[in-house]
Amino acid sequence: MSYPYSGSPGRGLINSQVPEQYHQESNLPSSILDDFHNAAAETEFEVSANTRRNYATSFSIFQDYCQHHGMSALPADPRAVISFIGHQKDLYLESGVQLSKATLITRLAAIRFYHLQAGFRTPTDHPMLLRIMRGISRNQYRQQAHYDQQPIMYTELARLLAAVDSQQSGLLKVRDKALITLGFQGGFRRSELASLQTQHLTFLHDKLRVRLAFSKSNQQGGKEWKDLPYSEQFAAADYVRRWLEISQLSSGHLFRSISRCGKFTRPYERKMPGSSGRNSGFLNGDDVYRTVKKYCKIAGLGESWFGAHSLRSGCVTQLHENDKDTLYIMGRTGHTDPRSLRHYLKPK
């Protein structure tokens, strides 16, 4: 495994203004190299795996652009980045719309990430580039896609569960009912559902408590949990209990992969970071997305309007229609800013 501190002089974890001799791994006493590598290995967790993949894709696009025009991508001149954004903002997708502002921001975030990782100053802080992005934000003539998944609420949830019942595999039915109801009642992101462990669940006398070891708004591993009352309609607790009973799970990931025949959970293996091989035997965020989309199609809800995010949006909207106040809803979803709920809350 290689780390961003290694390489040519002037590159490393330390700021590039530090004398270059301090950047050389060869200058370290051999007696501390193992400790140095052990500490540097933690940079793998600096950003999530999904973010790392998105950054790799965006930076690859930037590299191709620079190579085509004979410019350096790393380090990059701020004018090269400005030119790249000028090219990207006028691209049209097959759907006839232009790249969204969020996509352009991701492109810049990737360029910044790779520069800082390599020990270079980021070119994305150039004043002209900041002005350009403010202008793009206010440009009402850009043709962007404005697409929000519709919320899954009680009516749609009942149809989804009926669609799950149409499946032949009893094991699959039990798992997917637990997945859908827990995703809805807890307002979970799909990545959060996929990462839940059996030890994160506590069945109390009146509610199911679900601890989140990490989440998008809790990336430092602070204390966070969701309390899901048994009294709510379509409460997930009984579905989750049934899944734990039939799957006989006592540790590890909650939502496991199921064999093609539908009778067994697949062998479970979770690799330590940096080791060879792949994780296997449990669902990831994309699996959660595909599962929800599959049942939306079976239920006739329309694949283009509903998805995994519809569970989270539906949780917010349904609680609002149940006359719960903003603080209660934020406690359920984990939002830290009430303004963020506007994206999830659909009007009555």
Rank of each mutant, 00 (worst) to 15 (best):
14 I>F: 05
311 L>H: 05
133 M>F: 08
223 K>A: 10
123 P>D: 05
65 Y>R: 04
92 Y>A: 00
327 L>H: 14
168 Q>L: 07
219 Q>A: 12
47 V>Q: 02
35 D>S: 10
7 G>W: 10
267 P>A: 02
62 F>D: 00
267 P>R: 09
162 A>G: 14
277 G>M: 01
220 Q>K: 04
199 Q>I: 11
18 V>F: 08
252 G>E: 05
133 M>K: 12
43 T>A: 11
162 A>S: 14
280 S>M: 01
333 T>F: 03
338 P>Y: 08
35 D>K: 11
181 T>F: 00
223 K>P: 01
167 Q>S: 15
228 L>Q: 00
19 P>M: 05
270 R>V: 04
213 A>P: 02
341 L>D: 12
347 P>G: 04
286 D>Q: 11
137 S>Y: 14
342 R>H: 04
299 A>S: 04
228 L>P: 03
147 Y>R: 12
229 P>G: 00
179 L>M: 08
80 A>N: 15
63 Q>E: 09
210 V>D: 08
77 D>H: 14
314 G>L: 08
250 S>P: 03
107 R>D: 11
262 G>W: 09
253 H>Q: 12
115 H>C: 07
27 N>I: 13
231 S>R: 15
307 G>D: 06
26 S>L: 09
340 S>W: 12
26 S>C: 12
117 Q>D: 11
26 S>V: 14
144 Q>A: 09
6 S>H: 13
304 S>H: 12
248 Q>W: 02
140 Q>C: 04
292 V>T: 01
336 T>K: 15
184 F>G: 06
212 L>V: 03
257 S>K: 15
169 S>M: 07
314 G>Y: 09
91 L>C: 02
106 T>F: 04
148 D>H: 14
96 G>L: 07
147 Y>E: 10
185 Q>S: 00
214 F>A: 04
70 G>S: 09
289 Y>T: 05
149 Q>R: 15
316 V>Q: 02
207 K>D: 10
307 G>W: 06
247 S>Q: 06
38 N>P: 01
3 Y>V: 05
194 A>I: 07
24 Q>T: 04
313 S>T: 09
191 S>Q: 13
163 A>F: 08
226 K>F: 06
119 G>D: 05
225 W>A: 13
255 F>D: 04
